[in-house]
Amino acid sequence: MNIKKVTFKSFGVDLVGDLYLPQGFDENKKYKAIVGASPFPQVKEQVLATYGPEMADRGFVFLGFDYLGMGDSPALPGEFKQSRYMFRLLENTWDAVSYLGTLPFVEEIYGLGVCQGGSIIASASVTDHRIKKIATVSGMMAADAFQWADKAMANQLIAAANASKQAIYETGEPDYVAPFGLDDEQSREEHIAAVGSPMAGESYDYYGRDGIKGPKTVENYTNMHIGDQAMQSLISIGEAYADKIVQPSLIIYSKTAFTAICSTAFIEKLTNEHKVIALEEFGHVDFYHKPEAVKISADAVAEFFNK
């Protein structure tokens, strides 16, 4: 696999990325390029390192990168790592598109988002028509019904995030929390017992201490995150602007996944040309790493982008 380490400017600092290049890459030829958007709170060595090689194998240039304050990318001066704020993710994505646009071997740019990355790509594409098509996999584009179904719980998250923001401002120190109730030390049994979520097991198997892409496996990764992040993540931009998206769109999800409504509610609001692939047999996190789910998704995305 031909992977090139790259940097590009966003908010005045250098974001760090991996540029996956097709086999037999020739810089004198033209290629379709994909900007990848990852799930919360991932770094580029997780889902993007799964889909990057898959899409390069299918002839695309693929950019996976760490957002501002995540992984190898720095936080802004005076700010803190593990601060993945939704509004900045959009600007980072726009700057990633700008970077791809400077590469002489890139002819068209598409967007591929997984989980929260679906919301990022959908939201970024509303006003960035340099992105010619978008695809989302197990996406969280319409998160209102998912995040606000229990308003009391949502308001508890907001209260905690507000308190964290105030503490960060007053002390000048970061306030780190485990946003999904999963820290870097829990066992699988401890996590499931503590949170009781329908997704607890599959989430742990990916993100947990003993997970396939957890903190022991991915050097840059931690489950701890800046505490005020919920003040932005509870605002679902992609959902509110779904009817404004003009680019042809592909939505892939599983009808049996706990997060299915985040795709179906988004699809209902689309007015553009779009294609839906609704599968039965997968959970939300299966699309992150399970070979059969990844292959189905990567094949469909390649076919859609090549039309």
Rank of each mutant, 00 (worst) to 15 (best):
A142E: 11
V137L: 06
E239G: 09
D183W: 07
Y253I: 04
G17C: 00
L103T: 03
V195D: 05
P248G: 10
L250S: 03
G71E: 03
P74T: 07
W148K: 11
P174S: 08
A142L: 13
R130N: 07
P174F: 06
P53M: 13
Y204I: 06
K81E: 08
G201V: 11
P104I: 07
G238H: 11
K151N: 10
T222P: 11
G196A: 14
K29E: 13
Y288G: 06
N220F: 01
P77M: 15
F180T: 01
E292K: 15
D66E: 08
N220Y: 02
N2I: 12
P174E: 08
V294K: 12
T127Q: 15
K29G: 08
E268S: 05
F105M: 13
M199V: 08
I252E: 01
E107W: 03
A193R: 05
K81W: 04
I109P: 09
R84W: 03
A159Y: 13
S83R: 10
T136V: 10
E268Q: 06
F180W: 04
G69F: 00
A56L: 14
T7L: 03
Y206T: 11
F25A: 02
K244V: 05
N306I: 14
G172Q: 05
Y51R: 06
V195L: 09
E27L: 04
G24N: 04
E173V: 04
A142K: 10
H191D: 03
K4T: 07
E273H: 10
M153P: 14
A178S: 11
N2P: 13
A159W: 14
V106L: 08
A265D: 15
A160L: 08
M141T: 12
R209L: 15
T222Y: 11
A278T: 06
V61F: 10
M55I: 08
G111L: 02
S10N: 02
